Simulated scan of single mutants.
Amino acid sequence: MSVFRGRTPWTEEKKKQPPLFSNGEKAGMALCLAMLLFAISDGDVPLAFFSLSFLVYEGYNVVSKVGGERFHALASFLLGLGIALFAGSIVMAFF
């Protein structure tokens, strides 16, 4: 006699989708948004570019996970823009 352990073997269990953002990423985006608003109100351009680069990078993650192959060009553009904003913020901070 086979044992099914309380369920039939032919039913498929619905797999839970992993969340789009972890709790740390959500907290980081909230802090980054607060830094961006402070930088804009204070006139600190390198800090604004730095925080905007992180938000653009997280936008890249959203587009690549949600859009898949259909929005590959947009995801690549957001990745390049995030890297360029980060490099530009470093250059503006030191020069």
Rank of each mutant, 00 (worst) to 15 (best):
V45N: 02
P46D: 04
A39W: 07
D44H: 15
A48P: 02
V45Q: 04
C32A: 15
L31C: 02
I40K: 01
D44V: 15
A39N: 13
C32M: 12
S22V: 10
M35G: 09
A27D: 05
D42C: 13
V45A: 05
F38Q: 05
C32F: 11
F50Y: 11
A30G: 10
K26R: 12
N23G: 09
S41T: 11
L33F: 12
S22C: 13
D42T: 10
N23I: 12
G28F: 00
S41V: 15
A27C: 04
L31W: 01
A27P: 01
N23E: 02
A34W: 03
G43S: 02
F38C: 02
A39M: 10
M29R: 05
G43F: 03
F38T: 00
G43T: 05
D42L: 14
A34I: 11
A39C: 13
D42Q: 11
N23K: 13
A30C: 06
C32H: 10
A39P: 07
F21G: 02
G24P: 00
G43A: 05
F38H: 12
A39R: 05
L47K: 09
C32W: 03
D44Y: 15
C32G: 14
G43I: 04
K26W: 15
E25V: 11
L36N: 06
K26A: 09
V45M: 08
A39L: 11
L31I: 01
L33Y: 03
A30H: 04
S22K: 14
F49K: 10
P46M: 08
K26D: 00
M35N: 09
G43R: 05
M35W: 01
S22A: 12
F21Y: 08
F21C: 01
F21L: 11
F49E: 05
S22Y: 10
G28C: 08
L37G: 03
S41M: 15
L37Y: 09
L47T: 15
D44S: 06
M35Y: 04
D44F: 14
C32S: 14
L36V: 09
V45D: 01
G24H: 01
F21I: 00
M29S: 08
G24S: 11
E25D: 01
L36C: 12
G24A: 09
A48I: 05
P46L: 06
L47N: 11
S22W: 06
I40L: 13
C32Q: 13
F21D: 01
V45W: 06
N23M: 15
I40F: 05
S41P: 07
A30M: 12
A30I: 14
L36H: 04
G24T: 04
I40D: 01
L37I: 10
M35I: 08
A48G: 13
E25T: 14
S22L: 10
C32Y: 07
P46R: 04
F50S: 07
C32I: 00
L36M: 15
F50G: 08
E25H: 14
L31P: 00
L37M: 12
N23H: 13
F21W: 05
I40N: 01
F50N: 10
G28S: 09
